[in-house]
Design a protein around this nucleic acid. Sequence first.
DNA 1: ATTTTAATGTGAAATAATTAACAAATTTAA
DNA 2: TTAAATTTGTTAATTATTTCACATTAAAAT
Lengths: 211, 211
Amino acid sequence: METLPGKTVERLSQYRRRLLNSLDDGKEYIFSHELAEILNITAVQVRRDLMLLGYSSVYRKGYPVRKLIEVIGKRLDSSKGQNVAIVGMGNLGTALTYYLSGLRPKLHVVASFDIDPGKIGTTVEGVKCYSVSEMKETIKSKNISIGVMTVPQASAKEVAKELVNNGIKGIFNFTHIPLTVPPDVYLEEYDMLTSLEKVAYFVKEFASLRK
Amino acid sequence: METLPGKTVERLSQYRRRLLNSLDDGKEYIFSHELAEILNITAVQVRRDLMLLGYSSVYRKGYPVRKLIEVIGKRLDSSKGQNVAIVGMGNLGTALTYYLSGLRPKLHVVASFDIDPGKIGTTVEGVKCYSVSEMKETIKSKNISIGVMTVPQASAKEVAKELVNNGIKGIFNFTHIPLTVPPDVYLEEYDMLTSLEKVAYFVKEFASLRK
DNA sequence: ATTTTAATGTGAAATAATTAACAAATTTAA
DNA sequence: TTAAATTTGTTAATTATTTCACATTAAAAT
């Protein structure tokens, strides 16, 4: 089965979120243009993404919401589920723990790490904080494959190296230090300042266009 | 002057960050391939982006770091600076306030908003928290053009509407509710779950390819 | 029944983004 | 002071992504 383009994966994640909302609203069928409108994209885009999933709808009634959620899950999720650790329990790490805990049935936040003795041993949303020195055992015993890095920038490179050495296969890096990882580790980087600067740039541009 | 593509703006923001680091390290000139390596992209990409800026370097010595920082700033920043408000002072809002305060000389976090009486009136990194009911006056008096939304999802649509009604020109939405804004308002949405699901998907795919 | 209407799935076209290729320029080395 | 080496800027080619256009299908209306 073909690996999906990253952009499509992102949208499928969004579709699923919206479809779950729709189900809550009692909606059993949804048209491509409805889903598109919710996400401010085109209906063709939606249909093309679903095409890549190999899924066909019943004509004229729209896509059956339950079935579509299931089909997206089959493609995106790992059947056994995947375990995630939050590395760095500052405000951002804590926010992420609250946000992600229990959100997706196949993505479990099972541990967090910090170096602050005041945090080690504490629990947020049922997620226990371990010392960074316990990383090796914890990753192994809890079968953690994904690390979310919300550590201070000074320790970013070191922490990334340690995660990789201890068998992590995916890193989601929120620090603003660009990392390099081996080719068998998937790296996603997100820099909040960059996004904010983009907003600022386009606000400035919009303003100058209006003049 | 041409509006730059969003992708280029993102990279220019990154370049500037790296160039500032390089300056700290005492580096006065940098080659395109050096900058590229730091960011795990190609040297051609770097040169093409700089080409869009209309900037030419001194041959063979690399780009003068100071000058380049200045040129990027001229293009990205608003000369008078832009003011930002953080809306929702939970863990994420607090993290962003710490992170963004004083980070860029032309982007000032000048206020935050919340509805929790326990937070209103408090200060984080010199940023005072106001009641949401004071939004109109505060946005006006402090000349705020950008709102960063870190509110609970239930209030997202309402808050966005209020921001727009009170003259905000750019919204950076961290809630997982897709928003719709008038065409003269720039909207950037970021959904952390989507990114995490993307990491999870590719980790799963990498694993199955190895088999 | 037949026609109209409203959706879908998809090949082809268009657009956007990245990379390759290479001439021009300049430093370094011979 | 000439040749070799290196780096840049940019055109052209490539690749990725999105949109158009429309045949196909099925429900609803006549």
